[in-house]
Amino acid sequence: MNNYQGEVRKRGQNLLIVEGYHEKNKLFWLIFECFPEININMDEIWIYGTNIYQLYDDIVKEYGEEWEKENEDIDLPFVISKKRYPDKLRYKKDFTNIVLVFDYERHDTNFSEEKILEMQRCFVDATDMGKLYINYPMIESYRHLCQLPDDDFAERKIPVSLQPGKEYKALVEQETILGSKIDFPHRIDDLLEKHFEVSDVEKRKKCCNEILEISSVSSMENVIDNALQGVVAGHTLPTVKYQLIDWVTKQGYVHTNQTYWEYMRDIFKQVIYHNISKANRIQYEQYQIPENKYKEYFERLDLTEILKVQNFVSKDSAIGFIWVLNTCIYFIAEYNFRLVMD
């Protein structure tokens, strides 16, 4: 047990505890941009910096080996801030909702079926100790769709022998239809900064946003030309402009008369649907979900039962496998299910 007392703060913030940079600065940044109804800002995301098994050990250090059996009231914000931000301790009472996003990582030397099950069993309520979303085999699984819709996703799995994690990342990059779409804002920013030496962050941000707000082919060239004025050197403007016209055209969102954000919002809805269907297939052996029962099927999912299945099918290091599944994308549906239905 810990006996620390801290400054009382007004409860009302949300807290997302994620494993690394990708989760915060790529996935959740894009989610928040595409779903502005989600009232969470980037400062409410903490990067833990290591995996769930290290977090388990940190809990043990604070609460003892029997923390789950003794039904300890785990204060995760305190555990993490004590380790990473000791001068700015935070407490569970500071937050309205706490969400944890971590990878399964069976290949990790500290992997333990018992430990990860304890974590999933205990962290089930975002309004209490926190809700844990485990991604199988890792965060990149949200990108692992090869077409839209992707009927083959129902049976998509990877062998346990596919390790370390960089091997799965390489496989996803080879197979994904989503990678270039998800990375597009960062590609524009990199183009301006690294190739055309635009060092002013605010100028790059404004330019990127104007390009991502284009929603018609007829206005594309004019908008891009105006966005680049005063941002890139005059002699390079035609080169940058026509490169960006080519990129935007290939992304396809202008052909649907949508902005990039609207286009990606629709794609995220499809990603969520695929992963809810997949979880249903893992737990109940039924992939197809009746449209009028979408919410009902989502609400009956049990992340602990899904983890038990994943542990079972991946036991054998030679012939075992892991179902490809991203659960952190459920965060949007949990926040407000209407966001995935409209």
Rank of each mutant, 00 (worst) to 15 (best):
Val223Ile: 15
Asn51Trp: 10
Val198Gln: 01
Leu325Lys: 03
Arg106Lys: 15
Ile224Asp: 03
Ile267Asn: 04
Asn311Ile: 14
Tyr63Met: 07
Lys157Gly: 06
Ile332Lys: 02
Asn25His: 12
Leu307Gly: 00
Ile267Gln: 06
Val217Tyr: 12
Leu178Ala: 08
Cys207Trp: 02
Tyr91Ala: 00
Val8Trp: 11
Val271Arg: 01
Ile332Cys: 04
Trp67Ser: 05
Ser141His: 04
Val231Ala: 06
Asp103Trp: 07
Glu7Ala: 11
Asn292Asp: 15
Tyr53Arg: 02
Cys208Met: 14
Gln286His: 12
Glu173Lys: 11
Asp152Ile: 01
His107Trp: 14
Asp266Gln: 12
Asn25Pro: 01
Thr50Ser: 08
Trp46Thr: 12
His274Leu: 09
Thr176Arg: 05
Asp57Arg: 09
Lys269Gln: 13
Tyr63Phe: 10
Met341Gln: 15
Asp94Leu: 05
Phe153Pro: 09
Phe312Lys: 15
Val340Cys: 11
Cys328Ala: 14
Ile289Leu: 12
Ile116His: 03
Leu117Trp: 06
Glu62Ser: 08
Asp58Gln: 09
Leu339Cys: 05
Val340Ser: 01
Asn39Thr: 10
Lys269Val: 11
Asn97Val: 03
Thr109Ile: 12
Met1Gln: 08
Ile319Leu: 14
Tyr91Pro: 02
Gln243Asp: 10
Asn326Arg: 01
Tyr287Val: 08
Phe298Ile: 05
Ile40Glu: 06
Glu155Ser: 14
Ile332Leu: 04
Leu178Pro: 00
Ser141Asp: 07
Val248Met: 04
Thr239Gln: 12
Glu305Asp: 14
Asn257Gly: 02
Gln286Asn: 13
Glu202Asp: 14
His186Ile: 12
Asn292Leu: 06
Ile45His: 05
Tyr168Lys: 00
Lys293Cys: 11
Glu44Ser: 13
Leu171Phe: 04
Ile17Ala: 03
Ala318Asp: 06
Ala233Pro: 00
Ile224Ala: 02
Ile47Lys: 11
Val217Lys: 12
Met220Gln: 12
Phe312Glu: 13
Thr304Gly: 10
Ala279Trp: 03
Thr249Pro: 02
Phe184Met: 09
Ile116Thr: 05
Gly234Glu: 13
Tyr85Asp: 14
Lys115Ser: 02
Gly49Pro: 00
Lys206Phe: 07
Glu33Gly: 02
Ile52Asn: 01
Met42Val: 04
Asn41Ala: 07
Tyr63Thr: 07
Leu162Gln: 11
Glu65Thr: 13
Glu68Tyr: 15
Ser216Ala: 13
Leu27Ile: 13
Asp190Lys: 15
Pro86Ile: 08
Tyr85Leu: 15
